[in-house]
């Protein structure tokens, strides 16, 4: 089977679903399920006009900030916990607790401490990303092949080179897998954090549209969020392919959370 026919074959189901929806929606006149045209018009009006700078960009900016801070802090903490056994023993139960505590459950606490706004939203995203990355980086550091450690020692590779050229790449399958999991969690947390009374953002607009019976706009929001989740995940698959994939390593899923 050629690549093209393979692609066509895979496109049948989604195309049929979308066509079926449109066929049904045009006839059903159900206000909850507007036809595609109406959703597309609303999508353009809501997200691609002034809404882009008012809602889409702030949402993404919070996501990017929170994600990157959480990721970097998580990797740094994971390196520390992976190398220092006393710290690992000391903080083990606490880290375990925060790993399994769903980040969304912390929203009330963050709202009380920081109020509704960007700081609170970024804070929750940081939290949701940090512990997944922390735990998996620790596991990755612990799993570095003893042979590589020997190479580092035998050739007297200094601490900085050892960390950046040896230990971190060796732990990369764990870190990359965690970063991918963390990204999808961060998207969820971003949206939820906007639904607890934020005046702007993709999540806020979408939930408000539902409450105001603007169903086409609600659908436009759902489509945008779905596209966002999908494309971020696809972008990450590329990152994976050009790092661990290229080195012939396989991303390892360790501990996860939501």
């Amino acid at each position: 089977m050629s690549r093209l026919t393979g692609l066509l074959w895979q496109a049948i189901l989604p195309a049929a679903l979308i066509a079926g929806y449109q066929f049904w929606a045009v006839r059903a006149h159900n206000p909850y399920f507007p036809p595609l045209g109406a959703i597309a018009r609303e999508f353009r009006a809501t997200w691609l006009g002034p809404g882009f700078t008012e809602h889409v960009l702030p949402s993404l900016w919070n996501l990017v900030r929170g994600y990157l801070i959480g990721l970097l802090a998580g990797v740094a903490g994971g390196v520390l916990l992976g190398r220092v056994r006393v710290l690992r023993d000391l903080l083990g139960p606490l880290v375990g607790f925060f790993l399994t505590l769903p980040a969304v459950a912390l929203l009330p606490i963050f709202v009380i401490a920081l109020g509704i706004g960007a700081t609170m939203q970024v804070g929750v995203i940081v939290f949701s990303v940090f512990f997944v990355v922390l735990v998996n980086t620790t596991a990755g550091m612990r799993a570095v092949d003893a042979a590589l450690i020997d190479v580092g020692r035998a050739y007297r590779i200094g601490p900085l080179r050892r960390l950046f050229l040896l230990l971190l790449p060796a732990a990369a399958p764990y870190i990359v897998a965690a970063a991918r999991t963390a990204l999808s969690i961060a998207v969820l947390v971003m949206v939820v954090s906007e639904m607890v009374g934020a005046p702007y953002g993709i999540g806020a607009v979408t939930l408000l549209a539902q409450q105001e019976f603007q169903y086409a706009r609600m659908w436009a929001g759902m489509v945008l969020l779905a596209l966002l989740g999908y494309s971020l995940n696809a972008a990450f698959a590329l990152v994976e392919r050009f790092t661990v994939g290229r080195w012939g390593m396989v991303a390892t899923t360790g501990e996860g959370r939501s």
Binding site: A147, V151, I157, R161, L165, A172, W247, M249
Partner: peptide, 25 residues
């Protein structure tokens, strides 16, 4: 070392593997 597949760094090129200890030196 015995096991070349474990003692070479897969994320570095051949040149990178050979120069790493030299740069560290």
């Amino acid at each position: 070392f015995q096991d070349y597949s474990r003692s070479l760094l897969p994320w570095l090129t051949v040149l990178g593997n050979v120069t790493l200890p030299l740069r560290a030196k």
